[in-house]
Design a protein around this nucleic acid. Structure first.
Lengths: 163, 163
DNA sequence: TCTAGAATATTTCAACTCAAATATTTCTTG
DNA sequence: CAAGAAATATTTGAGTTGAAATATTCTAGA
């Protein structure tokens, strides 16, 4: 009952119809919920959440890393990483080692168990998308990338302080 | 240390095919973080989070609603709604009333303050997207919708229990 | 040198999110 | 009608998330 600014004083302005915008917002929320539900499911089946899995994979692919680097790789603030690493450490999947000359940095390493888990990684969120994408013609895939690209770029332009 | 297959032992470059899937996942994460940061900012400026604002707007646009309906509208499980409504009630923006013949349902209504806030609603997440979309040709907007459509549909196909 | 400021990690805090369990109330079916 | 099933809301618990404050450790400049 509000929000519909469809006709401007200019008359001739081509404007994204409000329903399209609504649809986009709706779908983004849908995407987010899908992720939410997926991580719960993952955690139930494999005792690792999506965030934790991302962290493990980042370490597996890059070797030991300090928290700040992990934060950048998995796109999360570093205070969030602390919690994730805490839980991974409790499960014996990673360890914190202070082995840098710079005594501020604490490197996080995979344990043997962590490496093993990363190796036969339970299907990360990707899997569903991968499976879905397999059935689409390349063109459609490109279109999705393009669309997301525009969206993220659009949101990024407004100041996203990077910490 | 893996995954970047760019140089094999021969020096022959097997150009990692543009990993579109990774890009998509990355961008989805980006979208999610943008939302996360946005809600914090909103809360700081207006003392209402995005979830709370969505709830208020749902009530403003539809009149009093039971929790289950709000859950569907804002796409969240109903146990989540309970918390959101709790906090809105604390701030005096909504009230719970048991006025249905079916004594299980509890209707949630806007208070005067809630209505006022909903009316001059602080820019919901939408605004940024709206602003961004305004500068895009209609075709691009369509493309975004299409792309998201494919994605959500693809994720939806796998059982998303709707509660 | 030593001191102010940067960088790193953590703690604390509030909010969100969902699943599972629980309590109430209503409905259905034998 | 009574018992079990379904619907509605809530509670509880674990996890994620980021801001702000704090503690440590470096670094650069007077």
């Amino acid at each position: 009952m509000l929000n519909h600014i469809e006709s401007t004083s200019q008359g001739m302005l081509i404007e994204a119809p409000p329903d399209l915008v609504k649809k986009i917002v709706y779908q983004i929320r849908r995407l987010m919920q899908a992720g939410e539900l997926y991580t719960k499911e993952l955690n139930k089946k494999y005792l690792v959440t999506a965030a934790q899995l991302n962290c493990l994979l980042a370490l597996y692919e890059n070797g030991p890393l300090p928290a700040s680097q992990i934060a950048k790789l998995i796109m999360v603030k570093s205070s969030t990483v602390t919690g994730i690493v805490d839980r991974l450490e409790l499960k014996g999947l990673v360890t914190r080692v202070r082995n840098s000359p710079d005594r501020r940095v604490i490197n996080i390493e995979l344990t043997e168990a962590g490496r093993k888990l990363a190796e036969n990684a339970p299907p990360p969120i990707q899997q569903r998308i991968v499976d879905g994408l397999k059935r689409l013609p390349r063109n459609d895939v490109e279109q999705i990338v393009q669309g997301l690209n525009m969206l993220t770029h659009m949101l990024e332009v407004q100041d996203l302080p990077v910490e």
